[in-house]
Write a protein that binds this DNA or RNA. Structure first.
Length: 434
DNA sequence: TCTGGGGTCCTAGGACCC
DNA sequence: TCTGGGGTCCTAGGACCC
């Protein structure tokens, strides 16, 4: 018999995290925006009730925000990341094995507990008491069924936020109530195909012939069917998997119309990407830089540039990454007579990014026979990181990304960001007032 | 005027090899 | 007219997740 797995997730996590520190946000409609204040990515129950959709662009919500007094917040990832860490700390006192799945969801090994329901309820209470974040728990013998249990618990408050589907009869009774689109791993495209052959509930999907499932939705759907039948196909994984890639991409606060501005944004993104590499003790073997015009403004001239270059030797050095990003940016810039980096067509670039692949732990970096030059002293990057850790991110940056005095037009908008309550003492209102 | 960011996994098809 | 078979590796693109 497969062991019981629980999944615990936070309700409207970003909104819940904000509410922990600002009681005025409780009981009223609240939305948290994506980077650049673009779309609603988290909504309180009250906001959902007003019909605010996930991912809806904020400019389309203007009337609703005004008419219903919806509170609008920019995303504050520093706060959410820290709150997430606290929630996981509590989980770890309730299960010997915790697999962090996302910022607001973790799988927990629930084997060995005699009364799983009671255990889950005391965990739920503890998380709320110690962090202020409300959570819901689904339990079953496969991850997919646990996610179904969680989904049911979310939608039916009568169970008090905890549902155990380990029992065959319970699954039998409740799976007809889960729509295929609400099953983990079944997205829009698959829903459409399943609907065409009359499969609409989790119970119907479970009873579908596996061969047909594979043919319709590849091995992924075949696994989902097996998981719904209680056969685990997705293993419990409490070790952090090795990263395959890493990206830093942003929409610009204002359109970027010249090479210098695009390069300033790419410099900032490459800088951040290098920081991430060093945090994880990795080096990268290749870098892709891209920038493109807005995909929504189809009447404007469009340009999409994406170039990849090798990092040789593999590197985690900010300067190396910026140099590579510059090579890509130059190679991708629209060619014109005269000044090679002018923009006579009036392209308005909306987004730029840096992606790193071929990642390896620094210790495993292969030696190279022909260096392009002497390697820089890692002490420089170390000093950079120490200073930025001590005085706050971006205290020390490269001139290439521009200076605050001159204005960073490419920098994202974040007009409604709350204080980083748990990680920046200087942002606490009471400290600021002194 | 204004539309997110960062991941994973799978498949098909081409290049290449013997 | 008739033009092998079987393997690996890589990449692009699709689907999905939160």
């Amino acid at each position: 018999m497969p062991k019981p797995i629980a999944i615990s997730d936070s309700a409207n996590f970003y909104v819940s995290a904000e509410r922990c520190f600002d009681p005025a946000l409780r009981g009223v409609p609240v939305i948290v925006l994506s980077n650049n204040d673009g779309c609603a990515v988290a909504r309180s129950d009250e906001a959902k009730a007003l019909g605010v959709k996930m991912g809806e662009p904020v400019f389309k919500l203007r009337d609703k925000i005004r008419d219903h007094g919806i509170r609008v917040l920019s995303s504050n990832y520093t706060l959410y990341g820290d709150m997430s860490r606290r929630v996981v700390e509590v989980y770890e006192t309730f299960s010997p094995n915790v697999e962090i799945y996302s910022i607001d969801e973790s799988f927990l090994d629930f084997s060995g507990f005699r009364d799983r329901d009671a255990h889950a309820r005391s965990m739920k209470t503890a998380v709320t008491r110690l962090t202020g974040i409300p959570v819901r728990v689904g339990i079953a013998r496969t991850k997919t069924l646990a996610k179904c249990a969680n989904e049911l618990a979310k939608r039916n408050p009568i169970w008090g936020g905890v549902l155990d589907l380990c029992d065959i009869a319970a699954a039998e009774a409740l799976l007809p109530r889960v729509a295929v689109g609400d099953i983990w791993g079944v997205g829009r495209a698959t829903v459409r195909k399943l609907d065409a052959i009359g499969i609409r509930s989790a119970a119907e999907l479970r009873d579908m012939p596996v061969r047909q499932a594979r043919q319709l939705g590849t091995v992924v759907l075949e696994r989902t069917v097996a998981e719904l039948r209680g056969t685990p196909c997705l293993s419990f994984n409490d070790t952090v998997p090795t990263r395959k890639g890493l990206a830093v991409t942003r929409s610009a606060g204002e359109p970027m119309c010249d090479f210098t501005t695009v390069m300033a944004a790419l410099t900032a993104h490459a800088t951040r990407a290098a920081e991430k590499l060093r945090t994880h003790g990795l080096v990268a073997g290749s870098l892709t830089a891209f920038y493109h015009t807005s995909r929504f403004r189809t009447e404007d001239p469009t340009w999409r540039a994406s170039r990849t270059t090798q990092l040789l030797p593999m590197s985690q050095d900010t300067f190396d990454l910026i140099a590579a990003a510059r090579r890509c940016a130059e190679a991708g810039w629209p060619r014109c007579e005269g000044d090679a980096f002018a923009n006579p067509w009036g392209f308005r670039f909306a987004k730029a990014g840096v992606m790193l692949t071929d990642l390896l732990p620094l210790a495993d970096r292969p030696a190279t026979l022909f260096h392009p030059g002497p390697e820089r002293d890692p002490a420089l990057m170390e000093a950079l990181d120490v200073l930025n850790a001590r005085f706050g991110r971006k205290s020390l940056t490269l001139a290439g990304e521009g200076t605050a005095a001159k204005g960073k037009s490419w920098d994202m908008k974040a007009g409604h960001r709350s204080p980083r309550w748990t990680t920046r003492i200087g942002e606490l209102p009471i400290v600021r007032a002194r």
